[in-house]
């Protein structure tokens, strides 16, 4: 009994399935030309999913096969879905609860960066130079408030009267030299590095930022 128990799928069944797959391909093209609002994507995915199931069940004979192979496939699909769902739960929800910046990192990118030559991709500061306010919004506002609110870092309110311009500049360039009691070291440096602050900001912009902070 070598292969005697193996199911031979009739040509008729295979042909019907092939016909259905072709029809579904036309349906998916047609429906995608219609404007169904938010339904376009789920519909296209549902049709694709159905086609995939049909191929797996009949062409791949999963329907007639040892059930353990069905379990194997289901596991694979399940974990692919978990991978996608949990990753999206981060990327789509960044900024929720107002604790961290939303959107993806970095927050502003010029397409020009893409046409830069490949070697040593030092990102060029976008022109025109950003203002102190813009830089604050991009890099600082997440942790340092302007109105005294306590965030992960100390507030900038009244900083101009507490610190000299040089001290502020030093704190920006090397955040761990002066630490305000009660606030963690290292955090700011790693955040700014992660945001490419030091590589993407020109000297002119740095001056503008310090001026902005000092004015608070």
């Amino acid at each position: 009994m070598a292969h005697g128990s193996h199911h031979i799928i009739p040509v008729r069944t295979l042909s019907i399935v092939f016909g259905a797959l072709v029809a579904l391909t036309f349906i998916t093209v047609i429906t995608s030309r219609l404007d169904l609002g938010p339904l376009n994507v789920p519909l296209a995915l549902a049709i694709a999913g159905f086609k995939a199931i049909v191929v797996a069940a009949v062409f791949m004979a999963l329907k007639y096969d040892n059930p353990v192979n069905m379990v194997v496939v289901s596991l694979g699909v399940t974990f692919a879905v978990i991978f996608m769902a949990i990753t999206l739960s981060d990327t789509a929800l960044r900024g929720a609860l107002g604790i961290l910046p939303s959107g993806h990192i970095p927050f502003e990118v010029e397409t020009a960066a893409h046409s830069e030559p490949a070697e040593e991709a030092v990102p060029v500061a976008p022109s025109p130079p950003r203002t102190g306010q813009e830089l604050y919004d991009t890099y600082c506002g997440t942790c340092h408030s302007l109105d005294g609110t306590v965030l992960p870092g100390p507030t900038f309110q009244g900083l101009g009267s507490l610190r000299t311009r040089e001290e502020i500049m030093q704190s920006v360039l090397d955040p761990d030299t002066i630490l305000v009691e009660g606030f963690p070291g290292l955090l700011m440096l790693s955040m700014l590095n992660a945001l490419n602050f030091y590589t993407s900001t020109s000297d002119e912009e740095l001056e503008a930022l310090v001026t902005f902070i000092q004015a608070q």
Binding site: T87, D90, T91, H104, I105, P106, A113, H114, A121, P123
Partner: peptide, 23 residues
């Protein structure tokens, strides 16, 4: 080729890389 999926200098998302890596 600088495809810009993970590299923040090219508009990619470094945290996405960490998702991939830690999955």
């Amino acid at each position: 080729m600088q495809i810009g999926i993970f590299d923040p200098a090219l508009g990619g998302d470094p945290v996405l890389f960490q998702h991939f890596f830690w999955f």
